[in-house]
């Protein structure tokens, strides 16, 4: 009987400086961005592993994690270029694999203070030592206060592939349905946070017993007040429909207004924000016709979040003339949620 010829073995992709940990599931440990991009180009759709706080949490069973013969994994732990933090004159540039604890150790003189407060209140000691800024940004869940603040500050992201490099705004990273725009061989390498001359800032997390990893709703507001007039203002809302929302029309309406804001201004803003937030949690039929066709589709949690966000935004706008008060309340809230799990 004629023997069947042996099937040629598939060779794992290897380039110098890269280790493969398992024959069944290839794991790569690149040492530079160039190696990382080459590997990602050759293995599109690989799992990029940074801190692990997101991946390990959401892929508990072996099968969900890829199991035997699953997607290749590219670990970022040896890519030193992704762990750099550089302070420039007009912005702070942070490598995508910088852990949050590193940003916390840099301090609030370099990291914008509101962002610093959000970082030191994120999760707990062990989580902050593992979780990376890039991982948080690329996570499909935008529940973090840090992300809401980055939206308000117009953070920019460097997206690289083997063929091109480009910068995008953080608000452009995800489509309306929350899916990332990154293609299978593109990776986030750096985050640029502009230093704005904000003299009012406030951030608040609601719900879920003060949990910072899964808050109910998040509001972040930044404003620059000159001669009792709003020169610039940024307002962002997190936790509604798993998205961060920033509406430029509302910010444009507020720019140039004198503080304290009049009742007329505030009611106009309130109606604008109601329209905006309702669009994210109320079903289409009730919005357009006023008739509820599918009672089960109303989400009371989202409704609670939206009303809480509306109230805190109005509170922020009402207190723009008291910068010390805003700072103290923000600090108090952070201290209270700091000690308990």
């Amino acid at each position: 009987m004629k023997e069947r010829p042996a099937k040629p073995k598939k060779q794992p992709v290897t380039i110098p400086g890269v280790k493969s940990a398992s024959a069944a599931q290839t794991i790569f440990f690149p040492r530079s961005i160039k190696e990382l991009l080459t590997l990602y180009n050759k293995n599109p759709g690989s799992i990029i592993f940074a801190g692990g706080t997101g991946i390990m949490m959401n892929r508990r069973s072996e099968r969900e994690r890829g199991g035997a013969g699953g997607r290749p994994v590219i670990s970022l732990k040896r890519v030193q270029d992704l762990t750099k933090v550089v302070r420039r004159e007009r912005f702070l540039e942070i490598g995508a694999a910088v852990p949050l604890s590193r940003l916390a150790s840099i301090g609030s003189r370099i990291v914008p203070k509101t962002l610093y407060n959000a970082i030191i209140n994120y999760g707990y000691y062990g989580t902050r030592n593992l979780a990376t800024l890039g991982g948080l940004i690329c996570s499909p869940w935008d529940y973090s206060e840090i992300i809401t603040i980055l939206y308000a500050l117009d953070a920019q992201l460097e997206i690289r592939s083997i063929a091109h490099t480009g910068w995008i705004l953080i608000s452009g990273l995800k489509k309306a349905d929350g899916e990332s725009i990154l293609s299978e061989n593109e990776i986030l390498t750096r985050v640029r946070i502009p230093y704005g001359s904000w003299n009012r800032s406030y951030s608040r997390v609601f719900g879920m017993d003060g949990s910072s990893t899964y808050p109910g709703a998040i509001f972040s507001g930044f404003a620059r007040i000159e001669k009792e007039s709003i020169e610039d203002i940024r307002l962002s809302f997190g936790g509604i429909g798993n998205r961060v929302i920033r509406e430029r029309n509302i910010e444009m309406t507020l720019q140039g207004k004198k503080i304290p804001l009049t009742e007329k201004d505030l009611s106009l803003i309130e109606s604008q924000i109601t329209d905006l937030l309702d669009g994210f949690y109320k079903p289409k039929d009730i919005k357009e016709t006023g008739v509820l066709a599918t009672p089960a589709s109303i989400n009371p949690v989202e409704s609670y979040r939206a009303s809480a966000l509306k109230r805190i935004m109005l509170w922020f706008l009402n207190n723009l003339e008291y910068p010390d008060y805003l700072g103290q309340i923000g600090g108090l809230q952070n201290r209270q949620s700091k000690l308990y799990f």
């Binding site: 592993f49 692990g52 991946i55 949490m57 994994v73 593992l130 799990f341």
Partner: peptide, 25 residues
């Protein structure tokens, strides 16, 4: 799930969650 802070260990001198570290790391 990295939420409770019960499983702290020291990895290379840093306090981390044991539940968030896969074997290959």
């Amino acid at each position: 799930a990295g939420n409770c802070g019960l499983c702290l260990v020291l990895k290379n001198g840093k306090t981390v969650d044991a539940c968030s570290i896969p074997f290959f790391e």
